[in-house]
């Protein structure tokens, strides 16, 4: 076969271009740190990487949701904790009021303290967290309880009974509120009942039915705290699981999208060697011609 000069130069040019293109591709991968810079680099892997990105983004959102639900449930629990302490004190006072030989002055003092505990309970019931009233149901901008005057005759619940649900996983929700119409309102009414009975000098009613109501309210509050604790535990374990999953997802995404540096640098070196060899060979071949040997 004849090999005209043009064939040699054309082949040198096209081969050198192929080598440069290969080096550029590898260089692009190294400098971007990414194996897939366009879907056509690996369409299947690109689609899988997009899916992983969506999954990771969703998983990060669920972690945020879990964190905010856990924080809110924690604040609710500590509010109910101080309510429990307060009711405990009210119970002690009521029992003390029932003991023999208690003076009217002491009784009146107990009545006053119970009234203060009532104010305190209303305050706890109106706790807010990040601008949201915790016990108002979904009427989170309205204080849960309304008590008017220094010695409020009644306490009104201003919230509703709606649950606030938070999505914390695929098809997993958690209720992140406790409504005040349950244990809290009962506790306040019990305090009012005992206070009013003592103020009216009716120790028997105060101690008998008042104490029963108070115990019932305390049980309800404790039950709510138990349920809160269970929910917080569930969120914690869910959070750990989601984060573990996310580490796996990141790993998978990395293996699809990211460059294996060691491997890629070796490939770059080998591509550069081939390129240099091609240039060297071209220099050898193009130089030689009969022209140089004539005369």
């Amino acid at each position: 076969m004849r090999i005209p000069d043009r064939v040699i130069t054309d082949s040198v040019k096209s081969n050198v271009n192929v080598n440069i293109a290969r080096m550029m591709k590898i260089e692009q991968q190294i400098s971007s740190g990414r194996r897939i810079n366009a879907p056509s680099d690996d369409p299947a892997a690109a689609a899988a990487a997009l899916r992983l990105r969506a999954d990771i983004s969703m998983s990060e959102q669920f972690t945020r949701n879990i964190d905010s639900a856990a924080a809110r449930l924690g604040a609710t629990d500590s509010a109910l904790g101080s309510l429990t302490d307060l009711l405990q004190r009210a119970r002690e006072l009521t029992v003390q009021a029932g003991s023999a030989g208690i003076s009217p002055a002491q009784l009146s003092a107990i009545g006053t303290e119970l009234n203060q505990l009532l104010h305190h309970a209303v305050q706890v019931g109106n706790s807010s967290f990040g601008g949201q009233y915790l016990f108002s149901g979904t009427k989170t901008t309205t204080p849960a309880f309304l008590a008017t005057g220094d010695v409020p005759a009644t306490v009104t619940y201003q919230g509703n009974t709606s649950a606030i649900l938070q999505d914390v996983g695929d098809n997993a929700q958690v209720q992140m509120n406790v409504t005040g119409d349950q244990g809290l309102l009962a506790a306040m009414n019990a305090l009012i009942q005992i206070r009013d009975a003592l103020n009216a000098g009716d120790r028997t009613t105060a101690i008998q039915s008042g104490l029963t109501a108070l115990d019932g309210a305390m049980d309800a509050v404790l039950q709510q705290r138990g349920s809160l604790g269970a929910r917080i535990n569930r969120l914690e374990s869910l959070g750990v699981r989601i984060e573990d999953e996310r580490i796996n997802l990141h790993g998978l995404k990395g293996s699809l999208e990211d460059v294996d540096m060691a491997d890629t640098i070796v490939r770059l070196n080998s591509a550069r060697n081939v390129y240099e060899a091609a240039l060297g060979a071209a220099a050898q071949v193009i130089q030689k011609s009969l022209v140089q040997f004539l005369r």
């Binding site: 690109a46 990105r53 969506a54 983004s57 969703m58 945020r64 999505d167």
Partner: peptide, 24 residues
């Protein structure tokens, strides 16, 4: 795509802000 600025990421981000809304 795939990148942090692509539609995939923005769609996911959009739906996620509505999940954020449930907290406040």
């Amino acid at each position: 795509e795939p990148s942090d600025q692509g539609l995939q990421q923005l769609m996911a981000g959009f739906f996620n802000t509505f999940r954020d809304l449930t907290s406040r």
